[in-house]
């Protein structure tokens, strides 16, 4: 039997991919040996991110690592994937939501409808602003051209942010050519890793979101062609990649806030922050009205956050 070859494209650029995906793929290839090999391609390398979903659905690309939002998946869950304001706070929230609160089933069903296998979710990123000029109040957001996720852009537009979507790898240069004033995309670990910490000198410690969710997908036919044993290995290696990201981000955020020299940290006042949180709840209500599936997911997020609130420390440290 000949070796199965997959082409996988990630949303991440080269530098980020070295952490968030490459180690897992190398492990997979090592273990799968002569049976299967995944060739990894980074952001926009084979197809532009805008065409990524279609390319996977059709089999041009066999597998994809991305959030739902940036690859514009034509599903009911798209808005929740890239950035859903205040839906989660810690990196463990995502696997709990998917494995214990029923999101896995919803995602699986939604993607099956469009011929795609949803393999695994579990990655999480904080989503902070990194900008060329400092943000010290909500007013400072006005008129800033910021690279962010589509849904984040919709939410942030009410604070005067001008959301811009560009190919991931073009972001650093775009800050230098004046196309962008900053990013609202990642935590400080990613800012340093991919080089955004050069042109963006300021880091806002308030993270307006904590809900970036990374998934693995595959073309349904390709997935079904893979023997069960290798499907299991794929799941295990993908879980390994989520685990890597958990400690990589958790440790990196703290270390770079303390020791990092390229970015100055700023925060915005608590009363400003309350406005953002209130706006987020309104935003959730609006999204919930769009469809039944969306309403269901929003209710899961609400339930989860209430549970976390009630559980108290160390789950949530809020005033209430």
């Amino acid at each position: 039997q000949s070796k199965i070859r997959w082409r996988m494209q990630t949303y991440a650029g080269v530098a980020l991919a070295d952490h968030v995906i490459r180690p897992a793929i190398e492990s997979f290839n090592k273990i799968a040996g002569d049976e299967m090999e995944i060739e990894l391609y980074t952001a926009d390398q084979l197809v532009p991110t805008g065409e990524l979903f279609r390319a996977m659905q059709q089999g041009t690309i066999d597998a994809v690592q991305s959030d739902d939002d940036s690859m514009a998946s034509p599903t009911e869950v798209t808005v929740f994937g890239g950035y859903f304001p205040f839906a989660s706070r810690y990196s463990l929230d995502v696997p709990v939501l998917f494995n214990q609160y029923g999101l896995n089933e919803i995602w699986g069903a939604e993607y099956e409808k469009v011929g795609v296998k949803h393999i695994s979710a579990g990655s999480w990123d904080p989503c902070n602003f990194a900008t060329i000029s400092p943000i010290k109040s909500l007013d400072d957001l006005k008129g800033k051209r910021v690279f962010t996720f589509p849904t984040a852009g919709r939410f942030l537009a009410q604070f005067g942010v001008v959301p811009v979507t560009l190919p991931y790898e073009d972001v650093e240069v775009a800050m230098q050519t004046g196309e962008l004033d900053g990013v609202a995309w990642s935590g400080i670990t990613e800012d340093y890793t991919v080089g955004w910490a050069g042109p963006a000198k300021y880091f806002l410690t308030n993270n307006i979101s904590g809900a970036w969710i990374g998934h693995f997908f595959a073309n349904m036919d390709r997935w079904n062609e893979v023997p069960e044993r290798l499907q299991e290995l794929l799941r295990v290696c993908m879980d390994q990649s989520h685990y890597y990201r958990q400690w990589w981000y958790w440790g990196g955020e703290a270390r770079l806030r303390v020791e990092g020299t390229k970015m100055e940290l700023t925060s915005i006042p608590d009363e400003d922050w309350d406005k953002v949180e209130t706006a987020a709840r309104t935003f959730w209500d609006e999204i919930a009205q769009e469809s039944e599936t969306k309403a269901k997911i929003v209710s899961i997020f609400r339930k989860y956050n209430e549970d976390m609130q009630k559980a108290g420390r160390p789950y949530r440290y809020s005033k209430a």
Binding site: G50, A72, P74, A157, V162, V164, T165
Partner: peptide
């Protein structure tokens, strides 16, 4: 088919 929109604001 999917009324595809550009993933921008």
């Amino acid at each position: 088919q999917y009324n595809e929109r550009s993933p921008t604001a």
